[in-house]
C-alpha cells in the first residue's frame, strides 16, 4: 500500500446517511462547496464529475468503490490533464452521537501538481460541510 499524501477528518453532529447525501447530492454540495456540484449515479464503475455553477467539468473520474453510507472511492483528475490522476476515499463512521468523516487523497502520480492544488481546498470544504450539516447553512468558502 502506498503511503497516502493527505488525510483529513472532521467530527460532525449528523448521521452517516446525511453525510453521504451531502457529498453525493448536487443540491447539497452547491450549498457548501463553493456552489460546485458532484454529479454521478454513484454506482461502481460509473463516471463522476465535479461541476462549477456553469456546468463546466472541473474534476472528472470513476467511482471505484461505492458502499453507501460508509465508503466512497473515486479517481480524481483535471479533465485537461487526465494523466495526473489520483484517488480520493471518503470514509464515514458513526461514533456515539457523531459522524466521523475521513477524506484521504493519495496515489498521486510522480510530478503531480494536484496535491498542491487541493491541500488548500479540502480543509475549507470539510469545515464548510460540517457547518452546513450542523446549521443548515454552508460557509462562503471560496468568496474570500
Amino acid at each position: 500500500m502506498q503511503k497516502p499524501k493527505l488525510v483529513y477528518t472532521t467530527y460532525i453532529r449528523s448521521t452517516p446517511k446525511d453525510v453521504w447525501a451531502a457529498i453525493t447530492k448536487p443540491e447539497f454540495t452547491a450549498q457548501y462547496w463553493g456552489k460546485m456540484t458532484n454529479v454521478s449515479d454513484w454506482k461502481r464503475g460509473s463516471k463522476w464529475e465535479h461541476h462549477n455553477p456553469e456546468h463546466e467539468v472541473w474534476i472528472t473520474g470513476k467511482v471505484l468503490e461505492s458502499a453507501p453510507p460508509k465508503r466512497l472511492v473515486l479517481s480524481w483528475a483535471d479533465p485537461d490533464d487526465l494523466k495526473d490522476k489520483s484517488r480520493v476515499t471518503f470514509e464515514i463512521e458513526k461514533i456515539e452521537d457523531m459522524t466521523c468523516l475521513t477524506v484521504t487523497h493519495g496515489s498521486f502520480t510522480t510530478g503531480s501538481t494536484m496535491a498542491g492544488k487541493v491541500s488548500q481546498g479540502w480543509p475549507k470544504v470539510l469545515s464548510s460541510l460540517k457547518t452546513f450539516l450542523e446549521t443548515g447553512k454552508g460557509l462562503n468558502i471560496f468568496c474570500k
Binding site: M1, L6, T9, P123, L126, K130
Partner: peptide, 19 residues
C-alpha cells in the same frame, strides 16, 4: 490523524479544526 500501514503508525496533519 493516525493511519496504520501494516505495523507502521503514520501521523498526518489535519488542518480542518484550524480552518
Amino acid at each position: 490523524v493516525v493511519v496504520w500501514r501494516g505495523r507502521e503508525k503514520l501521523h498526518y496533519l489535519n488542518p480542518v479544526p484550524i480552518q
